[in-house]
């Protein structure tokens, strides 16, 4: 019996437990057009990676608490001091000083509008979002960048006001824990596990 691989960090080292790969047999690929001769084999691969969020971990942790964090350059010597970033940037791209983590939850709630969007009928392997996926790119007042996310309730339009929702029940600790809905969407319409985070 196999067990999902789990990881913790202790004493600055990864401590791993369980199975991080599963072995399956190769299967021959034969050519129907040519007397079923061998042309190759399948190479099954099922492996779990270990990935650190590093300095961005605070962002992914706080989504599960109903918070959106960005960062701001506070280096007094930087020509672009005061620039606010979401997506989170650990370091200022201009002066490379470490940015200050700032809580942007209220800014996101009060000022988010759709800059552009895309309704995508297809997805790739490992997708966990419902299709069609309503990709949205969101502008915020006072923020220099434009966050990509997805709309869970409503039909997207450029300039539309949206508000954030958070997967606080059984969070995945990935970017999919943050989604958006049209302004004035009732709590009862939110997808399972999501809330406004108030």
């Amino acid at each position: 019996m196999s067990m999902f691989g789990t990881v913790t960090v202790k004493d600055g080292k990864y401590r791993i437990k369980g199975d991080f790969h599963h072995i399956s047999a190769n299967i021959p690929i034969r050519n129907q057009d040519n007397a079923w001769q061998l042309i190759g084999v399948t190479n099954p691969r099922d492996m779990t990676y270990i990935h650190t969020y590093g300095g961005e971990a605070v962002f992914f942790e706080n989504l599960s608490k109903g918070k959106i964090h960005g960062t701001r350059c506070d280096n007094p010597d930087c020509e672009f001091k005061g620039t606010v970033y979401i997506p989170f940037r650990i370091h200022c791209p201009d002066c490379l000083a470490k940015n200050t983590v700032v809580d942007l939850t209220d800014v996101c709630r009060k000022t988010a509008i759709i800059h552009t969007f895309m309704v995508c009928e297809r997805s790739g392997a490992f997708n966990t979002l419902d299709k069609p996926i309503r990709f949205i790119n969101i502008e915020f007042e006072g923020v220099t960048t434009i966050l990509m996310s997805y709309l869970s309730v409503g039909e997207p339009k450029v300039g539309m006001r949206v508000v954030p929702i958070f997967r606080m029940l059984d969070p995945t600790y990935t970017i999919t824990d943050l989604s958006w809905v049209a302004e004035a969407t009732p709590e009862s319409a939110l997808p399972k596990g999501f809330s406004f985070g108030h």
Binding site: M118, A125, L129, I133, F135, Y150, I175
Partner: peptide, 11 residues
């Protein structure tokens, strides 16, 4: 978000 590059490009 969807594991599909089209979504990132087509916006």
């Amino acid at each position: 978000l969807g594991h599909i590059y089209t979504g990132y490009y087509a916006v």
